[in-house]
Design a protein around this nucleic acid. Structure first.
Lengths: 237, 237
DNA sequence: ACCTGAACACCGTTCAAGT
DNA sequence: ACCTGAACACCGTTCAAGT
């Protein structure tokens, strides 16, 4: 334990200068200490020893704070790839790691579903996914559309997990199961046959891995200009 | 123009009895007339000529109102299937129709990403997706996990569209493009090579159809108990 | 130019009190 | 039992006024 350095007159260290970076750092502190729903413009301002109005000099709104914060959180991602590991395996692990990082703080994943993360780490992530998809055999246009699809799924997975066990919110899996219990045996034959837990059955990790594998397989096997033509006219059913 | 029927003493018709159904109906009216973000417990109570506290006798919270409302909206879905149309084609059209219904009211899709819809129409939708997946060759366990994956993607598609052109919110596609313009040519080779619009390039309908096809293909070609084993141990990268 | 106190225009939810 | 007025404990954002 090192002794405290001598303090200047006031109790707290000098009031930090406001800046985009200082705001993100303070937001991060609140996120760690109290969780996302305590991260309000007012709380953020209070931590920076100012009023909420001052923040609007540096950020447009609360959504921008969230976007910056998600990128900050993604700094933890390990984005190395030695080129030897099977690209599909690496890709799945990358998406799992991304989801796990969002899951660290309930609510962050929810935020990522709503706001596109803004910042360098997110661009790094996109870049690696593109490389891995192409290494696994996807064409460039396929990879381009695939990135979005895969991240959407990983984000949704994280959001689903995020509220699980969260006080105030219901466990979504329990909720789904109880909803399915309302299935009508004759109107909902398949649903009834599978039983109310079927949609979420099995070890959570296996479902997670299967979903990502299915999405990756789909991206890799679905060419962009064939097999998906739909005249889109005619009677709908 | 028919003449107004004679009114009883008061200006407005008799105050409707409160009930779950009356609440959903009033919520629906507000949704149609003013949009989801005007649908607050206070506005809902005002339309029902009462105070917000009264609603809590019938619904647990605002999330439950949203869940009921989404199900109400899904009543519009055409859930017939003659068994002759190719199940994959029917499945894609079903998911597109589901997304389009959510897109009718900006914000409803956002809500569906956060809250599991609760009600009979949602169960009907699950049932049909299960049938179509199995008709297309999926095993029951595959279909069970696939339902969730496909709906997640369709919902996310609707949510992305929902904020497009919405006042107050940025167009997400424009936002993504502008973010990608920050790519660093040496750090983000693939991203730079593709150009800033690549991830969202092409006619929106083609991207939408491709994403759904990719997901459907993935679900149909990814067996549940093989090909996706991951020891999950060892060094991560 | 940069910063901010105070206000504006709201929220969801609870609860004691009424009928 | 059913219903509700009023309050509790907050929000994000704006803007006129200060330095």
């Amino acid at each position: 334990v090192t002794p405290d350095p001598p303090r200047s007159r006031r109790e707290r260290p000098a009031k930090p200068a406001l800046s985009r970076e200082a705001i993100v750092e303070a937001a991060w502190d609140i996120l760690q200490a109290e969780g996302l729903d305590k991260l309000t413009m007012r709380a953020l301002a209070a931590r920076l020893d100012t009023g909420p109005a001052s923040l609007y000099v540096y950020v447009r709104n609360v959504a921008e704070v969230h976007a910056l914060l998600i990128d900050r959180q993604l700094a933890q991602l390990d984005l190395r790839w030695n080129g030897r590991t099977d690209p599909r395996t690496r890709l799945r692990r990358l998406l799992v790691a991304y989801a796990e990082i969002l899951m660290e703080h309930p609510g962050l994943a929810r935020s990522a579903q709503v706001t596109w993360p803004a910042g360098p780490h997110y661009l790094d992530l996109l870049e690696l996914i593109l490389r891995l998809l192409q290494a696994a055999g996807a064409s460039a246009p396929q990879a381009a559309w695939g990135v979005d699809l895969l991240l959407q799924i990983a984000t949704a997975m994280a959001a689903e997990h995020a509220t699980r066990g969260q006080s105030g919110t219901d466990d979504p899996v329990a909720h789904v199961t109880s909803q399915l219990a309302n299935a009508n045996p004759s109107r909902h034959r398949q649903l009834t046959a599978l039983g109310p837990q079927a949609l979420t059955a099995g070890p959570p990790n296996r479902r997670r891995d299967w979903s990502l594998d299915a999405a990756i397989n789909g991206v890799l096997t679905t060419p962009r200009n064939a097999g998906n033509a739909d005249p889109g006219q005619g009677v709908r059913h």
